[in-house]
Design a binder for these strands. Structure first.
Lengths: 193, 193, 193, 193
DNA sequence: GATGAATGAGTATTCATTCAT
DNA sequence: CATGAATGAATACTCATTCAT
């Protein structure tokens, strides 16, 4: 009945939605959520202002969708290590994954950091982050204990701090020696393998 | 803002200008710079909107002044350690100072973190932060080398990351065991004294 | 809209165009013309937005078409009385017709009232209503004169006012005793037969 | 302290607020609430768009305030008749007041009629109108009974319908013979005095 | 005939800033 | 020094309308 098949429509929708999300991630991360206007977003996505509202209910909805996608991605990536049984190896692998995350998802990282430091933006999201970080912490504690660290609770806090601190510096300083720092850490925490 | 407000507020007391700065720090830090309106600021400072423009040329000027005061204060505080000649002791003292800074200047810390992750806000300020952080890094490297760490360059990076990471977590998590973590760090880096 | 939808909907049945008109009448009358969006209309008519523009040039055109159909129907209905020669009987019959109109065409009635009180909507339509009302007035005046009223000009004004006022109240108040009021009127104006 | 005295400020506020309300009444009544934009309103009131929001929280708030003022005015006017003890005289006086209301408050009358026929605009206001109209009805019923009408309940309905119908026609037809119609009504209902 | 993605002008509202007093 | 009324550009969002298929 319809001259464009439903399949075609789905395709169109998918592409536009993707363009919008991609541009939003870019702009929110580099300029900031509040500073990015829908007009700018539309321009960058090469899409009309109105179209954005065909796909997202509001500016905030776009942000929430970005968060959702990002957390999902992180979950997916970190799930890769679950099969590794040796704790030291698994710990080591975590560092690699972390480095990969930083490099491959700069924008997401920036965005998360902003959201976490800007209480007003998204209370719902802050809670999700909170629980996510707690889970990460707990996992690290277990690994550190398994590897032989005493006082694994505090050690996990420190390791988490190191990683987030590194992420922080990495995005402030474009010349940050990420590889060297991570290699050094691996030596300390998992024998460098 | 906080009752435990320390010395940097010698600069701000009683007078309108100081009330404005104080309220601005509070609001910018807790709600975010962009989300805070001049109207809110005026209300919180119990001052008329117009008066704010007698003291500051613009909203951004207020922010810049806050940054200036804050950095100055940090300089002043960290200068206290310069007289200590023993590197280990001096390093240890740095940790104490850091803890004190976090606790006594939550608002500043929050504000800085926000600014650093939101490139758009203040390009001029970012440069100042950049050089400040570099100086800190260099100082730490020297201390670590003096204390006996090999590869002090990377170790300094890691230490800086730990500290900033701790600051990050401290403000996300109200129950963060700051003292324990710092004590643990002192054991690792300066023999715990 | 209403299940008791009468004859004027012979024009509208089954086909898309009719579904559109039907839904438009319903929505315009209950929500208001300006507040009803084409999207809502399409949804209610179970038709695509685009299709609406195959049948009507614009939103306003739909309204105009509704008016046309409605006025035509009223003409058709009131024409039924033209064959009655006895003025009293004819007058009485008019009351019955009026009651039937109110009950059978709530939506139209609402719509007309809205349009008449909102000058901006449709200037063209207002003229048509004006002449229609004048014609009604004149007809009533003749009947009232024939039945024996002195000062039939003013009496016609009053009768017209009563009827429109009743219509007004009928739609404001869902419990309006329409039958009793009309019966009472028939006693006054045409001996109640 | 303030160079403009509080009194001066109050004066300014009052004047601007009045200009806005006056223009809003005018525009809402003649063009319709939805069709009137804040921009138009600002222009007509010779005031900036922003200023309107210094005085009213939203467009709807302006409407609500207009309603409030209008109902208050009607109450005030109709209270004038309460002192008259003779029912016939009081009834007669009501007609005069009604005529005066129509002539002196065209805009309000228009506005009310619109609101009552446009369910979507203001549900809160519709309730207030409902109770107001009921009270009017009851009062009329008492007067009619006192004057000697049988079946005063229905008669009150009819009288209310006549009046609202007259109001309706008066605003549709600029040449409406309001005085003659009212005089005629007075003859019927209260002996014409 | 029929679809719904896409457009862009238009709307209500906010807010940093100015200014008369 | 101090006030708050006033401004207008900017913003998020809506919606009638178009158009490729």
């Amino acid at each position: 009945m319809s001259p464009r098949t439903p399949e075609q429509f789905r395709e169109m929708r998918g592409q536009s939605r993707e363009k919008i999300l991609q541009s939003a991630l870019d702009l929110f991360a580099t300029k900031g959520y509040h500073v990015t206007s829908i007009e700018q977003l539309a321009k960058q996505a090469k899409v009309s202002k109105g179209l954005i509202y065909n796909y997202f209910h509001s500016k905030q909805t776009i942000l929430e969708e970005l968060i959702r996608i990002g957390l999902e991605e992180i979950d997916r990536i970190s799930a890769e290590t679950h099969e590794i049984s040796d704790p030291a190896e698994r710990l080591c692998r975590q560092f690699d994954l972390f480095g990969g995350l930083l490099r491959g998802n700069e924008a997401y990282w920036r965005l998360y950091t902003q959201l976490l430091t800007q209480p007003t933006v998204l209370e719902t999201v802050q809670h999700r982050f909170g629980t996510f970080l707690e889970a990460q912490l707990e996992q690290m504690q277990e690994l550190l204990a398994a590897v032989g660290f005493e006082n694994s609770s505090i050690e996990a806090r420190i390791l988490a701090a190191v990683l987030d601190g590194i992420g922080f510096h990495y995005f402030i300083d474009e010349t940050y020696p990420l590889d060297e720092v991570l290699t050094h850490l691996k030596m300390r925490y998992c024998g460098g393998n």
